[in-house]
Structures are given as C-alpha cells and as structure tokens.
Design a protein around this nucleic acid. Structure first.
Length: 470
RNA sequence: GGCGACGUAGCAAAGUGGUAAUGCAGCGGUCUGCAAAACCGCCACUCGCGGGUUCGAUUCCCGCCGUCGCCUCCA
C-alpha cells in the first residue's frame, strides 16, 4: 500500500512519488496579510501542516515553503483606509499570523518568503518571459501573453475561448488580449514601488508565487497547495508563468483544500465567512475560547477537500471529543500485565496503528484516521477498567500519543487551574472525603455542587477523588 | 450562463459493487451513597429524488432537484 493523493490537475487519485527520492518539495500559497487572520486561513494552514507531518512520518524530508504576498492591491487599499504604511501593515500582520500558527501547533515552514524580499528574482523571471515571447511591456506594465501558452486553462478546465467569451470586466486597452494578466504594474503615486527594467513599479498578483517557488525549490516541485478558491486564476497563471519559462512541468501534485463555511444558527443558511456578513471568526477569538486542538479536530473531522462546516455546535462537540481523547491518557489503576484484557489491548494497539496508516495513505483521510484513534481510546479505557497496567498499558498510550501527534494534536490536559488555587481545592476535596466517610452526603454533595459552579469538576473513583478545572 | 465539487442517522462526518466507520447528542444497563467519568448495549431495513447497467448499487451511468466554490480580490 502506498500513499495516494488526489491531484486537481488530473482530477483523480495518483500514487505519490517524488522527483528526488525521499524528498518532498512543497509550496503552499500563504496569505495576503491585509487584515486579521480568520479560522479559514487557519484551516488551510492546518491541512497542509497535517500533510507535511504525515509525509515526515512516512520518512520523507519535506521542504515546505509558504509565502506571504505582502504587497498588493488589497494591502495598499487597506493601509490607505487606516492611514498606515502598506508595508508596515503587512509586515505586522504577517508576524501576527506566524504567532497564531505557532499557537495552533502548526510546524513552521522551512521558509516563509515575502514578495518584498523577492523583487530581483521576480524581475529576472519576467525578463525571461519577455525574452521568450511570453510577455510584453506596455507603458510601464508588463503582461503575460496568454495566447502564447498553448495549454493555458488545463488546471481549471477552461478554454481560452470560453474565458474570452465570458469577459465581463473592462478590458485594459494596453492588453493584447483580455485574458492577459499583469506581471508587473507601473507605480502609481504614493504606492510602494521598486525600480525595474520597465520603470518603477511592483509585481502583479501571480508572478510572486512562481518566482518564490523557483527560488526556493527549483523549477519543478512535488506538491503545490492552496485553497480551492485559488485554482483559478491564481494557480492557472502560476502554471502558465512557470512552465513557459522553464519548459518543464511545474508541480506534479496540485492539492487544494475546501473552504470553511458557516451555518447560521438562526436561519440554517450556509454562509461564506466574510466581513460584510459580519460572521468572521478570527483565530484570536477562537483561541480565547477553545484549545487549539479543538479547532484541529474540527478540521480533521472531514475530508480536507470538502467544504468544512463551522458553527458554535461544531466547536462544542469537538471540545467534548478532545475531552474523550484525554480520558485515555489518564494513568492506569492496576498493574495487570498478562491475560485476555492485556492481549485485547495489545491487539487493539496494533490494529489502530495499521488502520491509521491505511486511512492516511488514502489521500490523507483524517476523519478515518481519527476514527481509529477513538477505537484505541475505547480499548485503553476498557483495559484500565480491567486493571491493566504496566508496560502494555503505557505502550498503548504511547501509540495514541504518537498517532495523534502525526495529526498535530497536542493532547495536553487543560492547564487553566491557577497554580495558587490548587492547594485550596485540594483542601476542600480532602474535607469532602472526610464528610463522605462520615456519611454526611448532603454536605459533601453541596461542596461538589458549589465547586462545580466555580468550574471545578469532581470525580470519585476507587483511587480517591480527582478534580479538573475547566 | 460556463467550469468544478457535494447531497449518508437529531448534529458533524468516513466508507464500500454484496446489504452502512467514528465523534457529539439521546435511550437502557454496569459501577457509584448519589453523581461524574469509564465500560456494555440500543439508536440510518437505509445513504437527495427518478430512471438505467448488474444476480445484486448508497457505491457505476443518465436525468432532475438542492447546496457550495470559482469565473472579480480571497486559504
């Protein structure tokens, strides 16, 4: 069984192979930092983080490049409205996003290139295209000559004729064809600009990814990723630029994640997350309320290619899911190391491992992989009830941690209990234990109830009372 | 209008040409002084609707309905 990945280019599952054995070159389109990042951006980052972690688990070395488009129309427009310098704005937001990725347990990419740091390579790229007849300069702008690219449209399944027929925006008279797109834009007053062979200006939207990919990963890469909203025109144009320049296939696997969608709890209508609808959930606001693992579980629960449903209920459900995963990591209560219960646990552990790999090998079926983790959870909890302990028990827990780790789950019990309140809670629990010994259940129950109202949950077990703080 | 994806229990969501994982919620039980947690059992005679192919389809094909994405900036 080998890893199968769905490629948007062929629209089918393909066995995964790499250009260089054992090495994966992966370029993922990052964000344009012009406003606060929301959980849709987080979803994309997590999808590719899981892909990367799994590839590494399968012993590939992954060179992972994620860009920041830190200068473009939106950045400039947003900066103008808030009276900020565009590059200062995008730089601040990019750094903020990197902090949030860390909070989400997303492994740092190998490189995070930015457009503003890639200007010379971009200019060289454009010069190469012009030299080969794939681009032309016009009054300080440079355009890609789509007509010169014979197979333009093969990623998105559109023909050039269709696109021209469907043209419904004003055509810039300097373009030879309406489908041509800007590689370089001449500077307008007050905008960030860099010197170039065509005068002061800045890169167009698509060229930066081609240039950064080329710079950091070479002419050919194994995986190119991004949201499926980028399929056209962004990725189509990247292919056009990169393959026209190099004459080689650009990316072998095109991997696209679906969009995060909101279901309005009142109208039950599906809504896209957008500022105009006022339904944006920022990464920061999510993390204020929930553990990072909760969001990751939401993402893992469905296929990365499908739309992802998000609402408050989904968040709450997944918070409970996390609780359940954590129960399996609680310590053993016995020391049994032989017998049927032990055998069952060992068998379940082996099966979980095998089923996990089988699921992930099938185009990163994280929902199926999660299901195997929950089966292991049940086996571990059953074993604990049967007083299994020692090495077999620890080994099963280690497998659970290992596999969860491949999905990027931290599985840390919530540590919100303030250090200084712990001794007092311990004291109350101790007093309650005394009351229970004296059969003073009314008082004991009242203590438990009051603590619960304060967010402290008590669980009486054979080993004594455990408490958790929410 | 064009291109593409999807429609599985109350919710979320896997999956397969031979009769449906998993999680949450719910119900019954074990345990407990009572709870909680855990565990055991139950919970889709059915996979949008209508045709077709097949011995047999939720799974393949066609049509219809519905939802979503892209076609303009977007992870």
């Amino acid at each position: 069984m080998t890893l199968q990945i769905f490629s948007s280019l062929s629209r089918k599952l393909e066995p995964f192979t790499t250009i260089e054995p054992g090495v994966v070159r992966m370029y993922v389109c990052g964000v344009t930092p012009y406003d606060e990042a929301h959980i849709g951006h987080a979803m994309s980052a997590i999808v590719f983080d899981v892909i990367r972690r799994y590839l590494e688990y399968r012993d590939y070395q992954v060179i992972h490049v994620v860009n920041f488009t830190d200068v473009d129309d939106k950045v400039i427009a947003r900066a103008a409205t808030i009276g900020s310098d565009p590059l200062a704005l995008s730089s601040r937001l990019a750094d903020e996003f990197l902090d949030q990725l860390q909070a989400l347990n997303v492994q740092p990419a190998t490189v995070y290139p930015r457009v503003t740091q890639t200007i010379p390579e971009i200019c060289a790229f454009i010069e190469g295209l012009i030299a080969q007849g794939y681009a032309y300069a016009a009054e300080g702008d440079v355009y890609f000559r789509v007509r010169a690219d014979a197979d333009y449209g093969r990623l998105s399944g559109r023909s050039l004729d269709e696109m021209l027929a469907g043209t419904r925006f004003e055509v810039d008279p300097r373009k030879e064809s309406p489908a041509d797109f800007a590689l370089w834009k001449a500077a307008r007053p007050g905008e960030p600009a860099w010197p170039s062979p065509w005068g002061e200006g800045r890169p167009g939207w698509h060229i930066e990814c081609s240039a950064m990919s080329m710079k950091h990963l070479g002419a050919q890469i194994d995986i190119h990723g991004g949201g499926n909203d980028l399929l056209f025109p962004h990725h189509e144009n990247e292919i056009a630029q990169s393959e026209s320049l190099s004459g080689q296939l650009f990316a072998r696997f095109w991997v696209h994640n679906g969009m995060l969608q909101l279901v309005n709890p009142e109208t039950h209508q599906v809504e896209k997350m957008s500022k105009s609808l006022g339904n944006v959930v920022t990464i920061a606001s999510f993390l204020e309320q929930y553990d990072a693992d909760v969001f990751r579980l939401i993402v893992l629960s469905s296929s990365y290619r499908s739309p992802l449903t998000y609402n408050r209920d989904v968040a709450a459900d997944n918070a409970r899911k996390l609780e359940r995963l954590l129960t399996a990591l609680e310590p053993a209560t016995g020391v049994l190391t032989t017998g049927d219960s032990v055998d069952a646990l060992v068998r379940a552990t082996t099966e979980a491992h095998a089923n996990f790999i089988q699921a992930m090998d099938s185009d990163f079926n994280t929902a199926g992989a999660l299901a195997t983790l929950f089966e292991l959870v049940r086996a571990i909890n059953s074993a604990r009830n049967a007083t299994v302990g020692g090495e077999p028990f620890r080994s099963a827990q280690a497998t659970l941690r290992e596999l969860a780790g491949v999905l990027g789950l931290r599985l840390q019990p919530s540590q919100r209990a303030a250090q200084d309140s712990a001794p007092f809670i311990d004291l109350l629990v101790e007093m309650r234990t005394e009351l229970r010994k004296l059969k003073q259940f009314a008082l004991a129950d009242r203590l438990r109830q009051r603590l619960s109202e304060l967010g402290v949950t008590l669980e009486d077990g054979p080993q004594g009372t455990r408490w958790k703080q929410q």
